[in-house]
Amino acid sequence: MEDLESLAARVPDGALLALAPEYSWVPMALIRALIRRRVKDLHLLTVPIGGLAADLLIGAGAVKTLESAAVSLGEAGPAPRFSEAVEGGALDMRDSTCPAIHTALQASEKGVDFMPLGGLVGSDLVDNRDDWKVVDDPLGQGGGPVVLLPAIKPDVTVFHSPRADTEGNVWIGRRRELVTMAHAAAATLVTVEAVEDRDFLDDEATAAGTLSGLYVTAIAVAEGGARPLGLTGHYERDTDYIRAYAEEAKTGDGFKRYLDREVFAETGDETETETGAETGTETGAGS
């Protein structure tokens, strides 16, 4: 079985890395392990919006190119390292819009080179994307101009999940953007709370919420691996922690202090007490 550090070693410098939004099981322990291994030149894709994980990677200097529809810490306010990096011209920014990112991943899912999407025409987003193209409806169906989006094929998709089974299948519940991200990617790395001795595909009730092991490259156990973000049915997002981060990371010095304390001081074992495990709330059943 792999551990966090061996999983992190599977993400090469310069990789196109896909990350889901904060409510969708972000593998925070793995993100911290990536920063500890000093990953660099990432092409980060947020599917479609980013939060704490994107802000940490950007602040740590690990991101060269960012493709995103938005980056924010939600109720905790703006993502401070993201804002400063963009304002300082430190990122190759590919601004997008949510359905364009979903659609471009669906193109990869289907193995086609591009997909059309409605709307968008007249947005300055389109004028600033030389890889997008506006064409007249080529089939004459009366829809008018439409935007063609090139397929996005991530090198690596990463996420956290409550459980995998001993067959290498991973539970995703209703978080089906994780399925699209895995289908589209060349490799998918997953951290889990626990591995269960069973086969999720043997039971219709679990099979429908399962990402088949066909798409899963490697799995590591990381208890509390989404903290300080939440994991459906297991623990809640630690809002006090994230508010404190938003404040501390407003300056470069504050962010460095944060990284030293919360990321580099961490040993990389599976106990994430530094990141709010003690203050997190166990909710038991899915809410």
């Binding site: 479609p48 919006i49 995103s68 529809a69 938005a70 980056v71 924010s72 703006p78 993502a79 601004d95 997008s96 819009t97 949510c98 359905p99 364009a100 999407l117 409605g118 709307g119 968008l120 947005s123 987003l125 389109v126």
Partner: peptide
């Protein structure tokens, strides 16, 4: 600011 989200669609 954060970005355009899904507004363009």
């Amino acid at each position: 600011f954060p970005g355009s989200f899904g507004s363009a669609f």
